[in-house]
């Protein structure tokens, strides 16, 4: 007996976006699908990709991370090699948090030098994140755009700074991550603004702001689902791959607190906390995940089938 399954057909397709690699490296292509995630229907030419964060500046590491990535703190190039080499990260998210005035205030030229160093340490594709300080980033992005000798993605462009970030990216052939605070309409608005600047749609990723598990994950989940449904339904401004940075998972007390006896082992729990955040993002439709725990690269990649 055969049952007719009501499989939705979508008129739209997500733009395929490639994060270029250096010589000898493997570029990452995501997007290109015309169906919802995790289902054996429609076309999914590219599996979601899992990358790792490499960062400058101080970061207090929770127990689950101290033993794994702890030894590489302060050495972005070595960390980048380890992530891309041993831990299987398909791309790197290089956060220049250390340039923030409250995080040590490394100079803009230092930040640009770190970018150069990481790019020469590994051929893996790289997304470069700013420090989050508006005035510093206004100097940092142009410097990074110039310093990066191969194409990277700049993260992120938002309504306040998009002319500057996208302008720097355009001038040197980089891509951008378009950011909005958990709001589908603002996500679309950002992409329309980028399109008005003539920014090519196949060099744009959407960062919908990823809340950590237990702390706003549900809003992110629904916004990703809505962005994806809109993109597949033909709204070209939202037909972009979605990038989720899982860093907020590590802000949860549940991921880091060793003192609660009834919560189980803090290492396993922290790892699970990030993994669960990532799985929810994948179920909603995320195409790129950035994690901190090395073992989650394999865990999440295993889940991220075509």
């Amino acid at each position: 007996m055969s049952v007719a399954l009501p499989i939705p057909g979508f008129p739209g397709r997500i733009f395929a976006v490639t994060l270029p690699a250096g010589p000898g490296g493997t570029p990452v292509t995501v997007g290109g699908q015309n169906a919802l995630p995790l289902l054996p229907e429609g076309e999914h030419p590219n599996a979601p990709a899992v990358g790792m964060e490499v960062r400058t500046g101080p970061l207090e590491l929770p127990p689950a991370l101290a033993g794994t990535i702890g030894p590489f703190a302060g050495n972005p190039a070595a960390m980048a090699r380890k992530c891309a080499g041993d831990w299987g990260a398909r791309f790197l998210f290089l956060s220049l948090a250390g340039c923030h005035p409250d995080a040590g205030g490394q100079s803009v030229s230092f930040g640009a030098a770190v970018v150069r160093e990481v790019l020469s340490a590994t051929p893996a594709p790289v997304i470069v994140g700013g420090c989050g300080d508006e005035e510093v980033d206004a100097l940092l992005f142009p410097a990074v755009a110039e310093a990066a000798l191969r194409p990277v993605f700049l993260s992120y462009a938002e309504e306040k700074n998009y002319r500057l970030v996208a302008g720097a990216a355009l001038a040197y052939g980089h891509g951008v991550v378009s950011w909005s605070p958990i709001d589908i309409n603002m996500a679309k608005q950002m992409n329309l603004l980028l399109a008005d600047l003539g920014f090519p749609p196949d060099r744009v990723l959407i960062d919908p702001l990823t809340g950590g598990l237990g702390y706003g994950m549900e809003y992110t989940f629904s916004i990703i689902e809505r962005i994806r449904l809109a993109g597949l339904s033909g709204d070209a401004a939202l037909a972009r791959p979605v990038l989720c940075h899982l860093g907020d998972a590590w802000k949860a007390r549940e991921a880091t607190d060793a003192s609660e006896g009834t919560w189980g082992d803090v290492d396993a729990r922290g790892r699970r906390w990030e993994e669960t955040t990532g799985l929810a993002c994948l179920a909603a439709g995320a195409d790129l995940l950035v994690c901190r725990h090395p073992s989650n690269v394999a865990r999440l990649s295993g889940a991220a089938w075509r």
Binding site: E159, R163, Q189, L192, L193, D196
Partner: peptide, 9 residues
């Protein structure tokens, strides 16, 4: 002005 109501160049 751009679509967000900010001055352009």
């Amino acid at each position: 002005v751009d679509r967000a109501g900010r001055f352009t160049s």
